[in-house]
Nucleic acid binder design. Structure first.
Lengths: 208, 208
DNA sequence: TGTTGCATACATGCAGCCTGTATGTTATTT
DNA sequence: AAATAACATACAGGCTGCATGTATGCAACA
């Protein structure tokens, strides 16, 4: 059994402190907004001082960026986990949509990723993050569908971005209390509308 | 000829000062971000003191709200102005889309209405503003199309919100330098996809 | 019509907080 | 043990919101 707080390698210290800071910041950024959360509050929650924060991150915005990055990765992981590769292009897209909407129900995620994120980091930075995580699978799904001739050919970049925007707005509306089935139905209708052949409407919905 | 700075009714003073403040704030909020713009800077630009600001507006956020309100109304006016009522439902929607994308090219408008707006005022407040101005015509256009059987019946609220979200993202992408034709094409494809009958693709585009 | 009293439209000054940085101290690594 | 990394502490500047002070418009009454 090794000593409790004895030797700790510098890399371990850094890793632990950064993780503590990101965890604390995530908690507060999801409870309140970026602007309403101060660095004194964050470091108190993390159990360190502001010196540690500014040692590991350039500024408050950089810490926020790290939180967003992590959260975007988590959402992407949940989606990948929920959509097996054995589905048809269309079913895969629908499964992915449901997984996304479900993932975005985590408290504060919409504000973090869809409201504060774009405002604080800028749309360009958010696009970059999205393309590295969440949007990748969406884009691949769309390209696959187009390649399988089940979807009219369209500029992939633009199509991905606009559908993603619709998903985002749906997540926001649902969190605000709007009927989830309505938004799910419209999302599916939008995607199905892009097929040259009319897909027969599947069973109503998991209605989740 | 009446005296230059002689009598000025209180209502005139209020109106003028409020207008000056909103104008100055709009200028700065579109040049920089909400967070980067300080009230000292705003009042200097407006030629008043901070006392005047806090006399007329509850806080900085309220002033921002007034700016957003005005800007949303301006966008809606430009759209209404550009879409004559003599068009078919589909053509009217396309004309409205083009007008919207064109209106959003005004410098700083995307940041004001699409980035800072939702983050500072919240999505709920922005929805309320949008529904009072811009989205109204979009929603009416969609309902008209559905009623004319040229569009599958879908929950109007959700459809309006999601299409609006796509428009918004398109405006952001275009401002970021993305090819406008791509996004216009996808937007039209999304709307056309909702028709039971396949509309034949019209001439390429104004390609603006 | 003049004046008296109040409300409105500001200007100025202050208190508190927050961010970023500079400097000091302790623990690691070499 | 020297150097470097990982912090803690202290400080400077700026900003927001409010409280207080002042001048101007306004309304009623004499």
């Amino acid at each position: 059994m090794q000593q409790e707080s004895g030797h700790r390698s510098n890399r371990d210290r850094t890793e632990a402190t950064r993780a503590d800071l990101i965890r604390a910041a995530r908690k507060l950024f999801t409870e309140k907004s970026y602007a309403e959360t101060g660095t004194p509050e964050i470091v108190a929650e993390a159990g360190v001082t502001r010196g540690a924060l500014y040692h590991h991150f350039a500024d408050k915005q950089a810490l926020f960026g790290a939180v967003v990055e992590q959260e975007a990765a988590a959402v992407a992981a949940e989606i990948d986990h929920a959509s097996p590769p054995s589905l048809s292009a269309r079913d895969a897209l629908i499964a992915g949509s449901d997984a996304y909407l479900e993932a975005m129900r985590a408290p504060g995620r919409t504000r973090l990723l869809l409201l504060d994120g774009p405002a604080v980091l800028g749309r360009a930075a958010m696009d970059e993050i999205d393309n590295r995580h969440g949007n990748r699978s969406l884009r691949e799904g769309l390209v696959a569908a187009m390649r399988a001739q089940t979807m009219t050919r369209l500029p992939a970049e633009a199509l991905t971005a606009l559908l993603a925007a619709a998903f985002d707005r749906a997540a926001l509306a649902i969190e605000a209390g709007a009927p989830a089935e309505d938004y799910r139905a419209v999302l599916i209708a939008l995607m199905d509308g892009l097929s040259p052949v009319r897909p027969r409407p599947t069973r109503p919905a998991p209605s989740r």
